[in-house]
Design a protein around this nucleic acid. Sequence first.
RNA 1: GGAGAGGUGGCCGAGUGGCUUAAGGCGCACGCUUGGAAAGCGUGUUUAUGAGAAAUCGUAACAGGGGUUCGAAUCCCUUUCUCUCCGCCA
Length: 424
Amino acid sequence: MLTVAFIRENKDLVLNGLAVRNFTDAENIINQVIEKDASRRATQAKLDNALSESNKLSKEIGILFKSGEVQKANIVKEKTGQLKELTKTLNEKLSAYEAELSDLLYQIPNIPNKLVPSGNSENDNETVFREGDIPKLHDGALPHWELAKKYDIIDFELGNKITGAGFPVYKGKGAKLQRALIAYFLDKNSEAGYTEVQPPLLINEASGIGTGQLPDKEGQMYHVGIDNLYLIPTAEVPVTNFYRDVLLKESDFPICNTAYTPCFRREAGSYGAHVRGLNRLHQFDKVEIVRIEHPDKSYEALEDMVNHVKGLLQELKLPFRILRLCGGDLGFTSALTYDFEVFSTAQDRWLEVSSVSNFETFQANRLKLRFKNKEGKSQLAHTLNGSSLALPRVLAGLLENYQTVDGIKIPEVLVKYTGFEIIN
RNA sequence: GGAGAGGUGGCCGAGUGGCUUAAGGCGCACGCUUGGAAAGCGUGUUUAUGAGAAAUCGUAACAGGGGUUCGAAUCCCUUUCUCUCCGCCA
């Protein structure tokens, strides 16, 4: 979330930013924030004075009791009674203001970077890069769900039986290809300087709040009620939360982590929640990269991440494009996002395989992730993350684009991981 | 699952109602000392928040939340985490 101080000092900038997102009612909410904040601060000043007074009196009482002047002490005691009433009501007021203020702040999305184009939907996203030839497939080329069945490498029906729709079973060379991709992505990320980590797959409430899934998107996560834990929707959640309530030194930057995890998403209410094949699943595998950066370096880092992901798709020789998301399509917490899409020839459509974002201080503020700057003051760090890469759609793209009459070829860079060159 | 013991500053650790933001030690920073270093000596060393141009001052925080009290690290309730033993177990 945005900090109150930022909103107070940059009201116009905030309003303009929210306009790029088509955020309605912005002026009203921002005014309320400023108003509640002023009330909050005034109330705190009053409360602090009252507490200060009452601390003084308590000390006096202590001294009086020690010296045996019990009567005098009792007189002072009476005074503190009134103060107690006062601090009680002021405290209640203060908590109320704080609660109202954070309710408001939770509703305000991040301010988009200058580069973000305005727009309402994915149609207004800006294509900033495109590479790779669309392969010409033989007659009778199939979409991946048909290929999966033909070569018996992914069994959707079996997943239905065990769990339900959106939980496929990978088999034989399909399972091996999946594992190969994970190993390949992790190796490439490590080479690029990311530290490999294996986080827990369940998170507590505090972590969900830290990265913004809670309090109001709990419907999107699977919840284990008996222990009040949530299955992670992405590795971003546990890995970014490593740094919750942390005060870094400048010399700690940059922090670069990569993690492979399964991801669990309920996809409640999302359009086409049960589309065919691998395009949208409740459980899928993803390799994520997460960075914590100095604010001055975060956009450099974003570019570096984009180039890194670009390199992966180039090596896999998949046709892809990079989109800069428009205000209307930008995630709630992001300031700038680049989506990577692979073209699937057999489906004749673009499939999102990665999303790389800079959140600036938006997550760090909730996480209380700070560093000591050169002036010795603590300052919020910037957080970034991206998929590097999400497995199912990469897999779909590979199966569909690499199919031949003899079988599905394996990209050269993956052969040393799979141990085979073709699925037939 | 059963029984017990604990959670204090960057770390170790003292502290069972007021003079404790918290002894002592370690670490770290600066200064003195030294040819240089070490040792020694001295000084300093939490975070958040409110007021202020700033210096600074106030408030809050001893796992989290609530309570008792004029006053809580200290007493009570509660949640949570860690450790030990037993049980079960990949």
